[in-house]
Design a binder for these strands. Sequence first.
RNA 1: CGGGGUGUGGCGCAGUUGGCUAGCGCGGUCGGUUUGGGACCGACAGGUCGAAGGUUCGAGUCCUUUCACCCCGACCA
Length: 423
Amino acid sequence: MRLSQLFTKTSKTSPADEEARNAILLIQAGFIHKEMAGVYAYLPLGLRVLENIKQIVREEMDAVGGQELMMTTLQPRELWEKTNRWDDKIVDNWFKTKLASGIELGVGLTHEEPIVDALSSYISSYKDLPVTVYQIQNKFRNEKRAKSGLLRGREFVMKDMYTFARTQAEHDELYEQIAAAYSRVYSRLGIGDVTYRTAADGGYFTERFSDEYQTVSPIGEDTIYVDETKKIAINQEIYTDENLEKLGLNKADLVEKKSVEVGNIFPLESKYTDALGVQYTDDSGKKQSIIMGCYGIGISRLVGMLAEHFADDKGLVWPEAIAPAKVYLARLGIDEDVVKAADELYNSLQGAGIEVLYDDREDARPGEKFADADLMGIPYRVVISTKTVAAGTYELKHRTAADAEHVSHARLEEILHTVEASA
RNA sequence: CGGGGUGUGGCGCAGUUGGCUAGCGCGGUCGGUUUGGGACCGACAGGUCGAAGGUUCGAGUCCUUUCACCCCGACCA
């Protein structure tokens, strides 16, 4: 992508209507556009980050047998009345709308009901189970107060997965496989070391605990108690002696931390399947309840979380796995030799499948290009100038390195290919 | 939903106890000089001062209502 043609521009000043660092950085760097409170558009660079995160999540969900599908945003009222979740007194953050006929509809805030309803058409025998399905879709929640940039929006992108099992044991096995997949997701996103599987309230659904994935962060709204050797935690909401004992945690080993919830998984038992009358027939011809689980990851919240987590005083610092491009190619000057060398490198890297942001702007001075490279947080910066052309080398600098190094073309491609492979 | 704060060119801001043609920086356009960490000079363009109503000879400034955004709290299946 050539910066001279990029839809967005960076800004030297931070937006006046944002306080949250994730939103400030992403807006200044031109990754997102604020439409209204809690509602943000993804611009070309931001969309790449979003898609990179989605892709990692997809790969891990597919690896545990998940089948991707996409449910609808518009929801029929009757379906939600069957589980008693339509009434605003029960669920107060619905967005509701109407058909031209006046019939009320809901705008999807979660999808347990519709997914169960849809699967009722395809599941009838024990031979049809277990199944695991997921989607990545926008969710709409009428929050009384949107805040913290991308961390708490009214429209946001979420991956939600649902499992349906024949027995509790079968469910538990799926649940643990998916829990392991979640850990892999956070590791690949670069926050594995600060993200803890955290016991939380199963709440509305069951007597069991649910599991949250909490990333330790100063901007966190949640408080958790972490056992750093066991790598697990317990949410403050359920921090009681009784629960500590159930979880095999010792108070003396726990450290209090602020954290951001970046995922959660719930055992739902047969609450929804029974309520919607979806059962299966076992091998002796008897009707049996279907055990359900649901598993969420806030994709857009992760964009904000990661932006804020990986940043310094110069701007964003994306991990290679999710950066909008691997390389920021800064061309200094418009000398014929320089343009030629830069164009060649751009084409060659692109051809090798390495994503490059090519700063080919003729009206931007070097300092501006370096500042933008830093602000956008692109992992590697390559500079081509009259100096590098004369020396027959390229100047390469990692976003987090203090100094640049001068490398040959072969060495450059070698390093950048390694980057690509690890991503 | 309670409390606090802020709305002035695309962006960030200033604007005194009401006073005459509403300023500054960035960005933009044109011309010129520059060119390795956000350059400089000159010229130009760009505003119903969030909106509605009111007070006044006169309102960005005072009053009422309202909307939006931010923060704290409540809420967060």
